[in-house]
Design a protein around this nucleic acid. Structure first.
Length: 502
RNA sequence: CGGAGCGUAGCGCAGUCUGGUAGCGCACUACACUGGGGGUGUAGGGGUCGCAGGUUCAAAUCCUGUCGCUCCGACCA
């Protein structure tokens, strides 16, 4: 057994075993747990609280960009799904199907009784369902555009589930729009990807690379798929959000037509875009350290946790009201456009245990308040970004500066992640031998993204498959220079981002 | 769907080869001492050993079947 210089709160460090560390953080931060059903998880209050804050922000941005929320059913008639061929092909293998209804008791056990005449699919996504509605809602160019969103759960019967990253059931938001013109639909696609980029970078402090997917990585049935790709601490990529330009594919499949000004009948152009609970996985793998999670203050269920220190009833009588008063003062402050969220942890357990519990959960600021502090008019402050630098601060100064402290932590998380991204971005590889060598490593500390020229040949992607490397995206910031394809050596001008992925 | 493994207390496991009345650690409860880096002691509570059948005087242990989960691949937000 190796002896660490410092004891870490998470027993398995990132360097030792990243996937095991990831599972451990989820467990120790009390975010979620596996349920009895394969691939399904129970999202516990701390994990769900983070999701709710992310959700609130994203929902606000979706409304600001002119969309309305609504809700469609979880069951999709099989016939509806069958309409878009590529779409079916892409999702068929992972669809959960309901074939029976009602249960009867037989030999002391419950058995399905009535078989459904027509099976129902549990939505893996709602393009088919919503397309059917769009076809009925849209008659004239005056009905366009239609811009809706729904917050829902979807089911994809994945081969290999992983908490938050790939669960059989997951929560997400799916936006669906229909437009009269291709140009408008393309703008919509870009707009929403930009909303996602901002959500990731500005709200979650997760730096991403926005770009377009190559053909083989495209959403089934889409004309173009756009993505934000994030770099995890083990050098692997994670698709954190997608926006699809669907062209007229779904319009033709679902017969979504409108009458134009000139009286002609036209198919609409549609888009769809989504962000899921996978984002929580991205958050963990971007910001977590060997002491647990580090939650960006914007989405932390508690931004500040106050620990009253009292060894007997008498001091408790003084300290507890003071802690409550401090929380009240902090909650009156504003940060990120909302009230500060401070919480007093008055559970009857040791302070040390409480402290480490909140460190593992990633609370940005921990404030200890004891009799000595009260005498001096100060508080003992720990920042999650530097847990070994605990120091006293004047209470009044701390309260007034709390928003700035939180903003600083938010920035620090982004800066840390951005420097990791830069360190993991390899731009100096131009031939396939060097490329293979780069990815042929078990050492997670050396893995990362390669940015290089790509000729666009579908066959070249076959070469990548052997290395379990994929093209993550063709980034928007193309340099346009002539070069050679890193795989085939053919002339190429397009820049691509290559990486191993989750 | 291929390969591997595991189902014994809330969690993590030992016990299974070589059948003999179920054990450890953590967690939990009570009390005492503690209390600003996750503390110490004492005393407790908790299990039809995944499920079904078989062999046996006797099954967590042997046999057959079955269900479930985890990990590694192909697939994916």
């Amino acid at each position: 057994m190796s002896k660490n210089a410092k004891k870490t709160a998470i027993r398995i460090t990132r360097a030792e075993d990243f996937p095991a560390w990831y599972q451990e953080v989820i467990k120790e931060a009390d975010m979620a747990e596996n349920s009895g059903v394969r691939g399904c998880m129970v999202i516990k209050p701390w994990g769900y609280g983070i999701w709710e804050r992310l959700q609130r922000r994203l929902d606000q941005r979706i409304r600001e960009t002119g969309h309305e929320n609504c809700y469609f059913p979880i069951f999709i008639p099989l016939e509806l799904i069958e309409k878009e061929a590529t779409h079916v092909e892409g999702f068929a293998k992972e669809m959960a199907v309901v074939t029976h209804h009602r249960l009867v008791e037989k030999d002391g056990k419950l058995e399905p009784a009535g078989k459904l005449e027509s099976p129902l699919v549990i939505r893996p996504t709602s393009e088919a369902m919503i397309g059917e509605s769009f076809a009925r809602w849209i008659r004239s160019y005056r009905d366009l555009p239609v811009k809706i969103n729904q917050w829902a759960n979807v089911v994809r019967w994945e081969m290999r589930p992983r908490m938050f990253l790939r669960t059989s059931e997951f929560l997400w938001q799916e936006g669906h729009t229909a437009h009269a013109t291709e140009a408008e639909a393309r703008i919509e696609t870009e707009t929403m990807l930009e909303v996602y980029r901002q959500l990731a970078e500005e709200w979650l402090s997760i730096p991403v690379i926005p770009g377009e997917k190559s053909e083989s990585e495209r959403f089934p049935g889409a004309v173009e798929t756009h993505t934000i790709e994030a770099i995890m601490q083990d050098g692997k990529a994670l698709q954190a959000g997608t926006s699809h330009f669907l062209g007229q594919n779904f319009a033709k499949a679902a017969n979504i037509k409108y009458q134009a000004k000139d009286g002609s009948e036209e198919f609409v152009y549609t888009t769809s875009w989504g962000v899921s609970t996978r984002m929580i996985g991205a958050l963990i793998m971007t910001h977590g350290d060997d002491d647990g999670l580090r939650v960006p203050p914007t989405v932390a269920p508690h931004q500040i946790v106050i620990l009253p220190i009292a060894r007997d009833e008498e001091t408790a009588g003084v300290v507890n009201p003071a802690a409550a008063e401090l929380a009240k003062r902090l909650n009156a402050e504003n940060v990120f456009g909302e009230a500060v969220r401070a919480h007093v942890d008055s559970r009857d357990i040791n302070t040390g245990e409480k402290r480490w519990g909140w460190i593992k959960k990633g609370v940005p600021l921990i404030v200890e308040l004891g009799p000595k502090d009260l005498e001096k008019g100060s508080v003992m402050v720990t920042r999650r970004t530097d847990i070994y630098a605990k120091a006293p601060e004047d209470t009044d100064v701390f309260v007034g500066a709390a928003p700035e402290h939180l903003e600083a932590i938010q920035r620090k998380l982004f800066d840390d992640a951005a420097s990791l991204r830069d360190a993991r971005l390899e731009t100096g590889i131009s031939d396939f031998a060097a490329f293979k060598e780069y990815f042929d490593t078990e050492d997670a500390s050396k893995l990362g993204f390669v940015r290089a020229k790509w000729c666009g040949d579908a066959s070249s992607e076959e070469q990548l498959k052997k290395l379990s490397v994929t093209i993550r995206c063709l980034p928007y910031d193309q340099d346009g220079k002539e070069g050679v394809c890193v795989i085939t050596g053919k002339p190429a001008t397009v820049d691509a981002i290559f990486a191993k992925a989750y």
